[in-house]
Amino acid sequence: MIHWEGVMPAVTTKFTSEDELDLAMFETNIKAQLDAGVQGIILGGTLGEASTLTKQEKETLIKTSLTIVEGQVPVIINIAEQSTKEAIEVAQHAEKVGAKGLMVLPPMRYKATDHETVVYFKAIANNTSLPIMIYNNPVDYKIEVTLDMMEELSECSNIQAIKESTRDITNVIRLKNRFGDRFKVFTGVDTLGLESLVIGADGWVAGLVCAYPAETVAIYELVKAGKIEEALAIYKWFMPLLELDISPQLVQNIKLAEVATGIGTENVRAPRLPLQGKERERVLKVIEEAMKNRPELPDYKNLKSVV
């Protein structure tokens, strides 16, 4: 059972300089997320450099996360595989290891038709008891999960949420108008976070939360408490950082920000490489400016929700 709400970080995978999993820094980051008040941990997404991880590394990350969170929040694993067979195997293994939920992308590499995509999602859902969030990101993955497709997917009771990353925040309203609370809706684009929450999104699968967990959760809690102006003040400060998430180098960008806040390292796994030259200077300047003006946060953990 997952309460699909709140901020759920798509966490980065921490590596040592020898390209091994850095579980000590990973624990530091996860504990910072928990301290800030996140409602779930999502492993192995784009930010988690999933395509470069071995099956054993993914299992290690799940088990390590479960040990750290001690049941406080659900640990969710991303499914982004080449074939239906692989996707089912990964989902079943994640359930066996102890993951509490799945975030599922459409088939990778092959641009499936609407029908093929629906059949793919249903096959995964029908072969696991884990609750599922569908990840809808046609901008990056070239397949849109339409409202009509979600209608078909509503037949699977364990498909319970959608990460809405079309860049059209009015889809939040369309989903709510059509399905009510049948599907919980999460915004998946950092630069549309506050707007999506204001118009009814249930939660935020966030990226810059990896470096700034308290600021991200504060925005969510303030919006839910009806304190929009206070949330907006933080969001305005946050925006230059949030724009680092909508870039092909989002992993390198966000890991640099994690270094600045002391809860990560810059190490990435090849073929990714650390930022260089003018782009590195630009990103560091954004981070440096933000750190100089980092806002003092209100007591966001003790607000009364009005939503």
Rank of each mutant, 00 (worst) to 15 (best):
F186E: 11
F186R: 11
V189W: 08
D190E: 03
T191W: 09
T191A: 11
G193V: 13
L194G: 06
E195W: 15
S196I: 07
L197W: 10
L197Q: 03
V198H: 08
V198Y: 08
I199L: 08
G200N: 07
A201F: 03
G203S: 11
V205S: 12
V205G: 15
L208I: 14
L208A: 13
C210M: 13
A211S: 08
T216E: 09
A218H: 07
I219R: 06
Y220R: 08
E221P: 13
L222M: 02
K224M: 14
K224H: 14
K224Y: 12
I228V: 02
I228Y: 01
E229K: 05
A233T: 13
I234W: 02
I234H: 00
Y235D: 12
W237S: 08
L242W: 12
E243L: 13
L244I: 06
L244S: 03
I246T: 15
S247E: 09
S247A: 11
P248D: 03
P248K: 01
Q249K: 04
Q252A: 09
Q252R: 03
I254W: 02
K255Q: 00
K255G: 08
L256R: 00
L256A: 11
E258W: 01
V259K: 01
V259W: 05
T261H: 04
I263R: 07
I263P: 11
G264M: 03
T265H: 01
N267Y: 10
V268Y: 01
R269C: 06
P271R: 01
L273P: 05
L275T: 01
V283K: 00
V286R: 01
I287T: 00
I287H: 02
